[in-house]
Simulated assay, not measured.
Amino acid sequence: MIPEDHPRYRSLAARERLADAAREGIVALEGLTAHGRGEAFDYLIGERTTESALLAARTAAALLTTAHCPVISVNGNTAALAAGEIADLQKASGALVEVNLFHRTETRIHRITALLEEHGVNVLAGRAERLVPLSHDRALCLPDGIGSADVVLVPLEDGDRCAALRAMGKQVITIDINPLSRTARTATLTIVDELTRALPNITTACAGLDSAAAADLIGSLDNTYLLRAAITEIQKRLEHALD
């Protein structure tokens, strides 16, 4: 048991959830390494949501709520850490939710789907087809889901699928705490924030946007600015780390 007054409570609780999910076959072992890398960048950003990340979350809400066919793509880490937050965002945005995995087995698809459904997510079902131009199993997606989407939210994404989705003409929103990653630099919009902080911010923004505000946010979208702002925040943190 982790005491709730422990200064690292949120971080340690997330690690425990991922470890449990790995033992249950929901999270791939490689996903534990990926989470650790993200944690390191969260330290650098100060384990907080910056103003530029809030702007990115509001812009993500604008893209999702004005899309013709928005889809949230979920992998094992996302399901383990934020199934409830995905359910809330689905309700607020009207987006479809599809499970998409690099280390793909039908057993993992079933277990992740069951976990999401336990938290109230309506998970899209059907026969996956190799629609994304990739050589690995993340190419597999549902024709009525990612295959038809105009906007795809891909938390904790890998860069090659992000690039492939962009090449297909889709707008890609990613949540990536590493502003230097291929995904962050390739996406239409990058929210440089930790997953469980970012998702509720998008959900809240969905409820408060009117069409005019959404249009303004989309019209002023500048992902390079958002990435530079995140890197500037990290630089400031490093400069004053021992103050």
Rank of each mutant, 00 (worst) to 15 (best):
D176L: 10
T174C: 13
A82V: 03
Y9C: 03
N201V: 10
A212M: 13
L217G: 04
I109T: 05
A241G: 09
I175G: 02
L189Y: 03
R48M: 10
A87E: 03
L63P: 00
L226P: 00
D210A: 08
T105W: 12
R111M: 00
R182Q: 13
A19N: 05
E16M: 05
E117N: 10
A34G: 10
S52E: 10
S211I: 11
D176T: 12
D88E: 15
A28G: 01
L63N: 01
A184L: 06
S73E: 08
L44S: 12
L115C: 05
E129G: 11
A22I: 05
I2G: 00
T232F: 08
A114E: 15
T65D: 08
R161D: 05
A80L: 06
A13I: 13
I218Y: 04
F41D: 06
A229R: 08
Q171A: 13
E239L: 12
A184Y: 05
A198P: 04
L12E: 09
L131T: 09
R48D: 10
A230Q: 02
D42W: 11
D20P: 02
V154L: 15
N77M: 07
A214R: 07
A79R: 03
V71F: 12
T204E: 14
A19S: 05
A57Q: 05
E30A: 13
A82L: 08
L142P: 00
A125Q: 13
G126L: 11
S52A: 14
T203C: 11
T50L: 15
L180T: 14
E85Y: 00
S148M: 15
Q171N: 14
F102H: 11
A215G: 06
S135A: 14
R108P: 02
E129K: 11
H136A: 10
R37Q: 14
